[in-house]
């Protein structure tokens, strides 16, 4: 378990500089009021995941990771697990943006804690599509996929965020409590878990066979 934590720590040490660039951008967006809380939270967390992966795309760096006394499976597992800390950081940034927006006199709508859970859901969903592609394509095809994903994250998280926020399940959950939303939530949870497991198995299979 501990070396998974060290792998995540490594990623955070590597990407945090890049994330500093994102903060003024988010601030600017908050000023223009182009997004809501979910958007502000999903964007940085997804960007962290994508950046961490791209930083490791150089064959030499891939060899560095492979040289560590950590199995390939754990390396992959750490990538999936890193979605959790990224989401927490994303949520913290989202809240910060809300405060900034209010200070700037552009208040965004109220934030419900349930939205944070939805942010995690979206992040897991993105990761389970992105990571197998990352392990499948390797250094070669990754540049294009990375760009496509950044666009997808930016466009997708706004629309998806809004859709989700206005969805019946979310509304029920926020307004009427968890039991009223239970069927929808259960379906969402089960499908995310199923997708995650399939995605993890696929990534394992792809990365274990890869020569770096």
């Amino acid at each position: 378990m501990s070396n998974i934590a060290y792998l995540i720590r490594k990623d955070i040490l590597l990407v945090y500089r890049y994330m500093l660039v994102l903060i003024p951008l988010l601030g600017y967006m908050a000023f223009l009021q182009t997004g809501g809380f979910m958007y502000y939270a999903v964007l940085p967390s997804a960007m962290m995941l994508i950046t961490a992966c791209t930083l490791e795309i150089q064959p030499a760096n891939q060899r560095f990771i492979a040289s560590l006394p950590v199995s390939r499976r754990r390396i992959v597992l750490a990538r999936y697990a890193s979605v959790l800390p990224y989401t927490l950081i994303g949520i913290a940034l989202g809240l910060m943006m809300k405060i900034v927006a209010e200070l700037l006199g552009q208040p965004i709508s109220a934030v419900h804690w349930q939205e944070s859970v939805a942010v995690l859901g979206i992040n897991l969903l993105l990761a389970s599509v992105f990571l197998p592609l990352y392990y499948w394509l390797g250094p070669k095809g990754m540049q294009a996929v990375r760009l496509a994903f950044i666009v997808l994250v930016i466009v997708g998280s706004t629309t998806f965020g809004y859709l989700l926020k206005d969805s019946l399940t979310m509304q029920r959950w926020i307004n009427d409590g968890v039991w009223r939303a239970a069927p929808g939530l259960l379906i969402a949870m089960l499908s995310i878990v199923l997708l995650l497991i399939l995605s993890l198995l696929l990534s394992w299979r792809l990365y274990e066979r890869r020569d770096v």
């Binding site: 040490l13 590597l14 500089r17 930083l55 030499a60 760096n61 040289s67 560590l68 006394p69 754990r74």
Partner: peptide
Amino acid sequence: AGESAQLRERIGYVSDENYFYDHLTIKR
């Protein structure tokens, strides 16, 4: 085999290329 990663703790490896992250300091 698949799970022999722990054995690498007992190996000091010097690569023929720089495989560290270029933008980091030695300390980091």
